[in-house]
Structure formats: C-alpha cells, structure tokens
C-alpha cells in the first residue's frame, strides 16, 4: 500500500491534467466542475508542496554546515554561511531593516555583486571552451571551426565583412542550424511525452526512490 497509493495519486492526477486540457468549459461535461478551476486547484497544490518542503531544505543546509564546523578545512566557509544565514533571517524580521537597513544593504551590496561576478566568469569560460572545441583535429572539427569563423565575422563589431558573408550566415543559421534544432526539439517533445505517459501508467517509478 505504501507504493500503490502514491502511484494511484500520480495516475489519477496525470489523467485529470491530460483530459482537462481538451475541455475548455466543464470538465468531462460534469456540471459545476470547471476545467480551469480544476487546473488552478491542482497547480496550487504544487505550490503548497513546494512551500511545505522549504523547511526541509533549510534544515538540510543548517545540519550539513553545522557538522562541517567540526572539519578544520571547511570550517571557515560554513561559519560564514551560518553567520550570513542568521544575519539575513534576523534582519528580515525587522520591518524597518527590510527596506532600508542591513537586510537590503547586504542584498544589494554583497549578494547582487557576487552573483554578477559569478555570471561574468561565463565570458572567460566561453573563450576557454571555444578554444578546445574549435581545434582542427579532425574533418568535423575543422568544419565546425570554419563555420564558427564565418558566423563570427558576421557578428563582430566590424562585421559583416561582405554581402556574401551576410547571405552565408543567414543560410547557415536558417537551414542546417534550424533543421538540427528542430530535430532535437521534436525528439525532446516525444521523449517528454513518452516519459509522462510512462509516469502516468506507473512504468517509470524511479522518482519514488526505486526502479
């Protein structure tokens, strides 16, 4: 029963969500059951579960970092995390600090710049990844390198270098590139549908913690 009940809930909810998609008004012609309301009701449950699980996440974070205080090599990071956590929680409780105080100051002057810094690393990593990917070690890698060169020439500040370059880039992006993207998207759509059906039918159940 421990497994049958969750599987039954998944199956019933999955079938309801699938069917309501096709009924704009009353769900399955049943009076007083609006398809739209049913959809909103079930989606509200997703939010409720998400909010209820938040303490679980906070507990996990605190537990892991309190334990790391015992390890000499990771003590420093965990101490900073726990201190930041406490400061943000306490300052968040003070209404006057929330809008113009420690809470907002830490958010705007510490968290946002740090996030921007991490994001800006992307520029350097794009360069290093591109360097490895575009080395002409084989025929395919050479084709990739040439294609990348043509496209870069179109989008660099001084480009496009000629009308031919412009035309060629448009063709590359709209024909082989688009065809590949659509093929991948189609595979993803079918794969997602197959997985959804497998979950609804109870064939796929690893998300419950076992094969």
């Amino acid at each position: 029963m421990k497994r049958e009940i969750p599987l039954m809930i998944v199956m019933v909810t999955g079938i309801i969500m699938f069917l309501q998609y096709f009924f704009p008004g009353r769900f399955l012609f049943i009076p007083f059951i609006s398809s739209e309301k049913l959809f909103e009701f079930l989606n509200d449950w997703v939010m409720v579960i998400g909010i209820l699980s938040l303490p679980l996440g906070i507990w996990s974070l605190l537990k892991a970092n309190v334990n790391k205080l015992k390890a000499a090599d990771e003590r420093f990071y965990s101490a900073i995390l726990l201190m930041g956590f406490l400061v943000m929680v306490i300052s968040g409780w003070m209404p006057e600090w929330r809008t113009k105080g420690v809470h907002l100051a830490i958010f705007q002057s510490v968290l946002i710049p740090i996030q921007s810094t991490i994001f800006s690393l992307l520029a350097f990593f794009v360069a290093s990844a591109a360097y490895r990917a575009f080395r002409a070690r084989s025929v395919l890698a050479t084709i990739l390198l040439l294609t990348a060169f043509i496209i870069m020439m179109r989008f660099i500040p001084m480009g496009p270098i000629s009308d031919i370059n412009n035309w060629l880039v448009e063709k590359i992006l709209m024909v082989p590139n688009m065809a590949a993207k659509r093929a991948i998207a189609m595979g993803i759509a079918l794969g997602a549908t197959a997985t959804a059906i497998k979950i609804i039918l109870g064939i796929e159940r690893t998300y419950m913690g076992r094969d």
Binding site: R132, I184, A185, G191
Partner: peptide, 26 residues
C-alpha cells in the same frame, strides 16, 4: 533537454546525452 545549453555541454564535457537520450537513459 535545454537546447540552448547543449553546445556548451558538448564543448566542455566528455559525453553528452542530447535531449531525448536523457529521457531514454532509464
């Protein structure tokens, strides 16, 4: 299954499961 991220993974990792291959892994 994020098409925009696939080129990054292909360039930076040793093996990449592209879209539906990830779903088929099961």
């Amino acid at each position: 299954d994020q098409v925009a991220q696939l080129p990054f993974f292909v360039a930076a990792t040793d093996y990449t499961l592209i879209g539906e291959e990830l779903y088929a892994a099961s």
